[in-house]
Simulated scan of single mutants.
Amino acid sequence: MMISDDIEQEAARWFAAQRRGPMTLDERQAFDAWRADPLHQAALNRMHEVWGEVSAVGEMGVALRRRKARPHRAAIAAVLVLGLAVSLGGGVWWKFDQQSTQTGIGEQSSQELADGSIVALNVVTRARYDINARERVVHLREGEAAFVVRKDPERPFLVRTGGYEVRAVGTAFNVRNRDQSLDVAVKEGVVEVRRLSGDEKPMLLRAGQRLYVKDAGASARTAYKVSAISTNAVDEWRQRVLTYEDAPINQVVQDVNRFYERPLTIDPALGRRHVTLRLVIDDRADTVKRLAALLGAEVHNMGREDALKP
Rank of each mutant, 00 (worst) to 15 (best):
E200S: 10
L113C: 04
E305S: 12
H300R: 14
R155D: 08
L308S: 10
V299I: 13
D283V: 02
V148C: 08
V186D: 07
A30W: 00
V253Y: 06
W51N: 15
H300P: 00
G170S: 07
N250I: 01
P310W: 03
R284V: 07
V137W: 08
V169T: 14
K151P: 13
S100E: 14
R67T: 10
L113Y: 09
R141Q: 15
R221Q: 11
E298P: 05
M302N: 09
D179K: 00
V166R: 01
P22F: 00
R136F: 12
V148W: 03
L84Q: 13
V234L: 11
G189E: 09
G162F: 02
D306W: 12
A207D: 06
A85L: 15
R150P: 10
Q209R: 07
F15H: 15
P38N: 11
L64V: 08
V256Q: 09
T125R: 06
V92G: 12
H274S: 15
D6Y: 08
E154Y: 03
R221Y: 05
R273M: 04
A297W: 02
V288C: 01
R272Y: 04
Q29W: 04
G303Q: 04
W51I: 01
Q18V: 00
V81M: 09
D130Q: 13
E8V: 06
E305N: 08
R66V: 10
D306G: 04
V193T: 07
